[in-house]
Structure formats: C-alpha cells, structure tokens
Computed example of a mutant assay.
Amino acid sequence: MAFTVVRFNLVDPAATPESLSSRYRVALELASYADGHGVDTVQTEEHHGVADNWLPSPFTFAGAVFGATRRIAVTVSAVIGPLHDPLRLAEDIAVLDLLSGGRLITVAGIGYRPEEYAAHGVDWRRRGALQDELLETLSAAWTGEEFTYRGRRVRVTPRPYTQPHPLLLVGGSSMAAARRAARFGLPFFPSAHLPELEAYYHRMREEYGTEGYCMMPAAETPLLHISEDPDRTWAEYGEHFLHEARTYASWQSSGIRSAVRSSATTVDELRAEGVYRVLTPDECAGLGAESLVLHPLCGGMPPDEGRRSVELFCERVLPRLKG
C-alpha cells in the first residue's frame, strides 16, 4: 500500500485574520478526518515573512493536530534548524513527542532563503556550523543528563516519550547534508530523488562508522488534488496551484533549490508539467505510486474544495489501496 500524506502550509494570499483563522480550523478538521480514515501522516513545513501568510510555526500547528487526532503522525518537513534556539527546540520536540505518544517526525534542514536568516538576525554564512550545533545539542538534550552547551552545564527535561530520541532526520540535497547525516548517525531525507547522494551518504556512514538509512523520495511525487471533474477544477482553481508553484520558483537561484521545482508560468503549462496533478479517484487509485501526497488547501484553495478533495481521497481511493 502507498504511504499517504496530507500536506498543509496554510497559505492564503487574500487572507483576513478571520478567514485565516477559519482556514486553520478547517485544516484541523481535515487532519482529524484523515486520521479516522487511515492516512499515514500530516506534513507541514516552515517559512517566514511570506506575503501569502505561509505557516511559520510548524510545531505549534503539530501540537494542535495531535490534540485533534489519535493515531496519525505529523511530519515537519522541514524545520529550518539554524533559526531555532537549540535548547528550546529540544524542549518543544520532547513535549510534542510526549503529548502525541511518539507521533512527531522532524526533518531538520537549513533552508534556502537568505532573507529568512536576515529577518531573524542569523548569519547565513554560519548555517552549516549552526546546524551541527543544533543536532549535537538535540542528541545530548534528549538523554535527560547534564551536558556542556556553549561553555555552561545544562540539562533539558522532561525526557521524550520515544527512546533513544524522537525520530529526527537530516534533510537537504547537498553533499554537506548527506555528510552531516552520516556523521551524526541520523537518517537522511533528500528533498529530491538523487540516488548518487544516497550512495554518498552510505559511503560516509561507513567512513564514520555510524548507523542510518536514507528515505529517498520517488523519482516523481506529484502534489495531488482529487476531483470528479479535473477539467472543472483546473479551470476554476488552477490559479491556486500556480500561485504556489510561482512562489517556490521565486525562491530558487543559482545553487539554491526549493522543495517544489516548477518552471510553469501559466495554468496550462502547470497542468502539462505534472508537478501538480488533479486526478479522479479512479486515476489516483491506479497510480501505483510509492507515496501519495494530497495538498487540499494549496495556494489558498477554498476550504470547501479542499474538503471535497480529502473526502474523495479517503472514501474512494484509500479503501481500494488497502484492499
């Protein structure tokens, strides 16, 4: 059976405080509904200062999801590690791990938007060193024992629910990220299908003498929306998909690769490209993909349309995959 994901970044370019509050509540309703129908994980991410109100606080959102669900995991993919205080992040993750009974999955990346570092007063040039410090601190903090942090003795309590520590992966699509994951003995989660990087990660593991594994994305993992009439959905709501695609494209430059890569400039180009796909339930059930990523509120999608997508997926796709 395919691994199933419902993704939320809570973007709404035309939001008012009231409409954005409503969108957040709808996301929790959909997470609860997905939980009851056997979806594997809710996925969310972190971005700051984006004009379209992109979610900046994934762990706060994760806590709300855990309060509204019983079994579904929440994957934060990814947290921008160097923007966080390491001790406070260790505490926050430990509390969420306890609250959820071990349902939190954290992918630690370093981000790809220098403006986010500038806004938080963090030196972009030190991001690698800061990420190393973060991973080292999390590993030490979750033991519950005293350790040395920036020249002083500290202790983080409570210990997390998951032992030896909550699931933590190193994200990225660079050799530095693969090397970092290998050095710390942590799983590696590339943001794109890069088999040569997986091979490099395992060579580095052997060199460092560490354990670990690579969670390599499939060569194609499109963002999905389910509709009984894809032509209508593209005609009425295609601009929402295009908004997100163009936002990601605006964040890419030489040497910087965003998580979603699209070169489309029109809805028709986006549809032909296949990064975002609107499928009927039958088409989705027949994909044969290793993972299915549903993105119901993409780009400010009206909540009712997002609801329809999730309901079709849960009621007419998931039963066939399970069967």
Rank of each mutant, 00 (worst) to 15 (best):
E115P: 00
W234L: 08
E290A: 08
E18S: 09
A31H: 08
T265F: 09
T16E: 09
A264D: 11
A68T: 10
E207W: 09
G274Q: 08
D35K: 13
A181M: 12
R205C: 15
R261S: 15
A90V: 12
H295K: 05
G255E: 06
P303G: 02
Y237I: 11
P13R: 06
P230W: 02
E283I: 10
R153Y: 05
S253A: 12
L194G: 02
A68K: 15
W54S: 00
A192F: 04
A2Q: 08
V156P: 02
D85L: 05
A108L: 11
Y237Q: 13
D52F: 10
P230R: 02
T69I: 08
V74S: 03
A199Y: 11
A73E: 14
A192K: 04
Q163T: 15
M175A: 13
Y200Q: 11
M175Q: 14
A62V: 02
H225G: 10
Y24K: 04
P82S: 05
R126G: 02
G209I: 13
D85V: 06
R203F: 08
G67W: 09
M301L: 13
A94S: 15
T210A: 07
M175E: 15
L186V: 07
S19Q: 06
P230D: 05
I93T: 10
G63H: 03
F184G: 04
A62N: 07
Q163K: 15
P217H: 07
